[in-house]
């Protein structure tokens, strides 16, 4: 059987997903992906007539069932401290992460 997700494509996906995998994990995941895709291919056998729209939600929203947009009124959040207490590294109110390097243009 032809593998849809080749090791090269898999590496690309892993990079896109910002994941670091052990070799065993990678092997297992790639095999599972290919297996799932076999199941997914069942979709391609379904005759889809023109004009069948995609459904982003199953339930269709009507004007009666849709909440109105929010009024533009400021409500300060009282618990900012609790938010910041979750941050792995902070400094003087800033959230700290490692750098993103730039290249100078000659």
């Amino acid at each position: 059987m032809q593998e849809e997700i080749t090791p090269e494509l898999f590496e690309h996906l892993v990079e896109l997903a910002a994941l670091e995998l052990t070799p065993e994990e990678g092997e297992y995941l790639r095999a599972q992906l290919n297996k799932q895709l076999q199941a997914v291919h069942e979709l391609q056998a379904i005759p889809l007539e023109e004009g069948i729209p995609p459904a982003s939600h199953g339930v269709s929203y009507t004007p009666e069932s849709s909440p109105p947009p929010r009024e533009d009124a400021w409500k300060p959040y009282p618990n900012v401290e609790a938010l910041l207490s979750q941050v792995p590294e902070t400094e003087e109110g800033y959230i700290v992460v490692p750098d993103i390097p730039h290249e100078a243009l000659s």
């Binding site: 979709l43 379904i46 069948i52 459904a55 982003s56 199953g58």
Partner: peptide, 8 residues
């Protein structure tokens, strides 16, 4: 395609 099948 999956979203359209969802419609079906």
């Amino acid at each position: 395609r999956a979203l359209r099948i969802r419609t079906l």
